[in-house]
Nucleic acid binder design. Sequence first.
DNA 1: ATAATTTGACCCCG
DNA 2: CGGGGTCAAATTAT
Length: 301
Amino acid sequence: MENQASNGRKAIEEELNKGRDTANQLLEILVHKSNTRHTDAEVEGLVLPFAEDLARKVLISFSNTLLLLSTQSDVSDGVVMPVAVNDVSSSLICPNLEDKDGVRKGSINAKRRRISNKRNAPTWEKNSSHLIEDGYIWRKYGQKMTINAKYLRTYYRCTHKYDQGCPATKQVQRIQENPPLYRTTYYGHHNCKISLSPEIMLEPASSSDSSVFLSFSTTFPTKEKYQFSSSVLSSTKQEPMEVIPDDCGIHNQLPSADYNLLSDYELDFNCLRHDTMQSMPSSTESFLFDKVCGSDMDFDV
DNA sequence: ATAATTTGACCCCG
DNA sequence: CGGGGTCAAATTAT
């Protein structure tokens, strides 16, 4: 019992640390942005999405912390396990931004002429020790063994490609086995509209119960949902082939625990959709603040 | 029943 | 022609 409490405390600390780290990353991005000359389009198309991602993570950390705090005082509702928030050391590479050493000056000009080719320059890419969830719903449409990669590469497109004509795609390339490492490369931008629950909108100034994301807990009455969403991540759904069953031992600590936290895995509520998709057609699909930067790029079209 | 994944074929492009 | 990306029919999951 005291153990639980200390576990909870530890988890809280971890969450806070994580939030701090993420905020630092965000700061770095912003500083880097202002130190480097980028066109608006570059900032908008490359920097923003990542910054947004980081901001989201910060918010998640807040939410998790709050959740932990509230759960701690009400232990009967569920056991809070330390979610082994093994730092999601994910590094981001913005391929288009990387040439700050003057390697390729033309990119600024090239920003709009990518229409010619189908395979455009990546929007951004990210290495991660786990499968990235980014808040969007992806549909796998292929996989390939590429010539000089030892591992499979899988191809995903936005689920709304056909019903909304959303052009976004991504590739996930496993680049390392032992400490699992994936490179996720995004192409194109989402223009799909997702029904967005107003509660989920970012509302920095709400003073009282600012647990913005905790609205999930109200959206989903039972904690099964949480379990579901957390397990789905590491097991089947997303990257069946490529998924590593025992995600770098992150879950090792947790027997069958129903930890209610949103770990970085669940970070993006994408996964929550799995149980809603059939049953509730117009449901508040529950995720995404992506609307925030919904100024769909000047790209293409 | 519908939706997602699997997987070999197909289709460019260099 | 080969490689990488996508399609689509069959299969599997929900």
